[in-house]
Design a protein around this nucleic acid. Sequence first.
DNA 1: AATAAAATAGTAATCATTACTGATTTGGGT
DNA 2: ACCCAAATCAGTAATGATTACTATTTTATT
Lengths: 125, 125
Amino acid sequence: MKNYSKQREAILTVLRETDTHPTANWIYEQVREIIPNISLGTVYRNLSELSRNGDIISLNVGDGFEHFDYDTTPHAHLHCKECGCIHDARLECDPLAELSKKMGFMPDTTIYVAYGICQNCKTTN
Amino acid sequence: MKNYSKQREAILTVLRETDTHPTANWIYEQVREIIPNISLGTVYRNLSELSRNGDIISLNVGDGFEHFDYDTTPHAHLHCKECGCIHDARLECDPLAELSKKMGFMPDTTIYVAYGICQNCKTTN
DNA sequence: AATAAAATAGTAATCATTACTGATTTGGGT
DNA sequence: ACCCAAATCAGTAATGATTACTATTTTATT
């Protein structure tokens, strides 16, 4: 990631301007409206490098897809088993990081995910 | 899961008797020592049904494999990025469940995973 | 403009997991 | 004990998200 590329720029723009937690394929579909002949492999490669670099977050909620998040500040995620949406939640503490250290484990990141039914699905059904 | 099967019995035995958080393939290899001609598909199907049934836990730490845990009591996981091991940690609170409810989200399960370097890898390298 | 490194498009390969099919096993009723 | 329908299985083929590969294009520097 030494050189600029308009593809990476467009990927970051798409990711910045959504409040969802999209998959690589969703991002691909969106970026194609900016760069119609962009390759899916390019999207995957850039997302993977950006994530390794700490510029974005990669999130796995066990639905078979990797999800990406432009927001790298610490926050938890609420994953709806009904509609698949992922919402953010701000915890003001990180008890697992503290417990980890006490146990001699050096945590880089802690991930908090709640699985359940979101407000929208609860009222709709 | 209405009928008994010695395959499912063996899968549960293997899972009960390890303190690791094995993948389907690892379980398959172990069960083959009890039932040499068991099918990998049988292992996957049983793990998936047991997990859907709440008898075991399925855990995804983003390493490309699904992991399984015989212990269904609430606990957090520490995943070492170096050796890939997963250790248990007992949190005495569940702040995400509480926050979720306040936000109108009905959580079934909350998952806590810390990513970092385990004590063993830290001292070895 | 010339050059080397980096990035890309397009396509092929990987591989964990799931689906399918015909045979075997289980359990309840007789 | 035997029958039968439902459940489960072994073995194999298919799926599909992700990664790898290659020839070409773009970027940054001189």
